[in-house]
Structures are given as C-alpha cells and as structure tokens.
Amino acid sequence: MKKNLFISTCLLGLCTLFAGSCSEDKLSSESVITLGKEGSTPLDQWLKRNYIDTYNIEFKYRYKDVESDFSYYTVPARYDRAVKMANLVKYSCLEAFDEAAGIDFTRNNFPKLIYLMGNWEFKNNGTYILGTAEGGKKILLSGINYIDQVLTDAKSINQYYLKTVYHEFTHILNQTKPYSADFQLVTGKGYVADSWSKEPYVTDNYCLEHGFISAYSQHSDIEDFAEMFSIYVTNTPEQWEKWMKIAEAKGQKGFIVSKLDIVRNYMRDSWGINLDQLRDIFLRRQADIVAGRIDLTDISL
C-alpha cells in the first residue's frame, strides 16, 4: 500500500506551545481504546449522521493498533479532542469542498477513513509526522490531543491540522487522477528527498529562494504538488504575496508561479474546482473557527 507522509520540522517552539498540556488533562470516563459496543457515545451517534450517513466516511477516534504504525510510540486521541477535530474537519474541509465543488465531489473522492492519533509520530531526524494518506482510502491525523492550544490562532491551526488535511487530500486526488508530468520538470533538479529537513534546505527562506513554496516541497514532486495546493488554499493572498516577493528577489518567483499554474489547471480541468474560490471559502470558514463563531463541542442531533 502506498503511503504519502506530510512531515513537519520539529522546532523548539513546539515544546513551548504545548508545554503543560499533559498536566492539565484529566482522564475521561469514556475509554478511547475499547467499548462494550460501538455507537454507545454521543459522538458515535453524531458521526453516524454527519460522516457515515452524509459522506460514507468512517471517522475513527478509538485507538486501533492495526491502524497505527508500530515504528512509533503512539497514544490514543482523547474523546473531547476528537469531538472538536470531527467538527473542525467537517466545517473547514468537507463542507468547504461541498461549497466549492458540490457534495457529490466530496462523497465520491474524500477518503473513506479518517483515523485520529493523540500525539505526533516523531522521527529520528528531528521531524514529526502530522498526517499520512494511504492508498487513496485513508487519512491519518496526528497530534489531536493538542488541538485546544491552537484553535484561536489561524497560523497554528493551519500548521498542525487544516493544511495537513488539504495536503493529504491532494495525494488522494493525485492517486485517482495523475497531474501533468510537466510539473516535476519545473524545478526537477532541486528535489533533495529526506535531506529537506537538513541544512541548508530547512533554513529560513532557502526554499523560496530556490523555487519552492516550503522546505518540505523540496522532498519530491509529489510532496511539492501537495504543498503548492494546500499552502495556497490555506493562506491569505497577502501572505502569498509576501512569499512571492522573497522568491522574486532571487529570480525564483517564475518557477513557483509556473507550478501553481499547473496545480490550478489540474484542479479546474480534473475536478472542476476553482482554486481561488476554494481559498476564499476556506479562509471564511477558518475565520469562523478562530473567532469562536462555530461551537466545536456541539454534537447534538
């Protein structure tokens, strides 16, 4: 089974951002590992109506060892955090694609399994895995237990969760309909595989100054494509222009623009999605989340 990884650099700020969260947690009376029967919690009933019945998507928040990677130390997602993540994905991702391309697009193309992991999967090279996409059928989302620390900050909620969903969904779409081979030729000599997380590739602005939108984009054309799509959609036009000015100063803006054009045409011609319209929809919904206008704890029927 083919697995695509979305990996982020492990920075010192991560420790600061989430410091003390473990000491504040209290054990839930609901087991996240096993229950006597499925469908016995309010979340199970809400998921049946809003995920299974609406999209035919299974949203797994209980720990299942067969869904996990034994190469990493992992912990279950907490029940209350799973409630918030289920609402977050529904409002900011599923319903955003509904609005941009129609609910049939989401039903037909979004992976049929979303699995939650409480912590991130840390690698020996100083990076950690935020999510994976497997075989066009499954998305794994990690670090769910830390969701409370980022919900009021757009940059953080993107970095740790929302951008990950869009990035991984791009892999699913690419596995169904391949993108043009022209994409990998634009900056083909710049891909460095796993070295993307090392000096000098991971340093500030190095990627932009060499025709890539992020450090992880330098891994491969597959990750570059997913990064181009997810970063463009989940960031404001003002932020995008700031990045383009950095790239332009080194004569690299044209490479990024060329790749974005291929992504834009792919989404339009293959899936009927207008990239700018999807970005507008996402940013509006993201603003609702950050401002607290959406109650992520609401699982009433």
Rank of each mutant, 00 (worst) to 15 (best):
I114E: 10
K163Y: 10
L208T: 13
S195F: 07
G126V: 02
S217I: 01
T132I: 03
M117A: 12
F122N: 14
Q175E: 14
S197M: 14
K138V: 01
T152N: 15
K242M: 14
M244I: 05
V202E: 09
K123D: 11
E223I: 08
H210D: 07
A226R: 05
I157F: 11
K189A: 15
D204I: 05
V233W: 02
D194V: 15
N205E: 13
K177N: 07
E248F: 06
I114T: 03
I114D: 06
V165M: 10
E168M: 06
L185M: 15
G251K: 01
M117G: 11
Y201W: 05
K137Q: 14
D204A: 15
I157K: 12
T203W: 06
K242C: 08
F122E: 07
N145Y: 05
L140H: 15
Q239T: 03
L185W: 07
S195E: 14
L141D: 10
L162Q: 06
C207R: 08
Y146V: 04
G131T: 00
G188K: 13
M228D: 12
N158R: 06
H219D: 13
V186T: 05
K177V: 15
L185R: 15
S156L: 14
Q149R: 14
T170K: 02
W240S: 06
I246Q: 02
V192I: 08
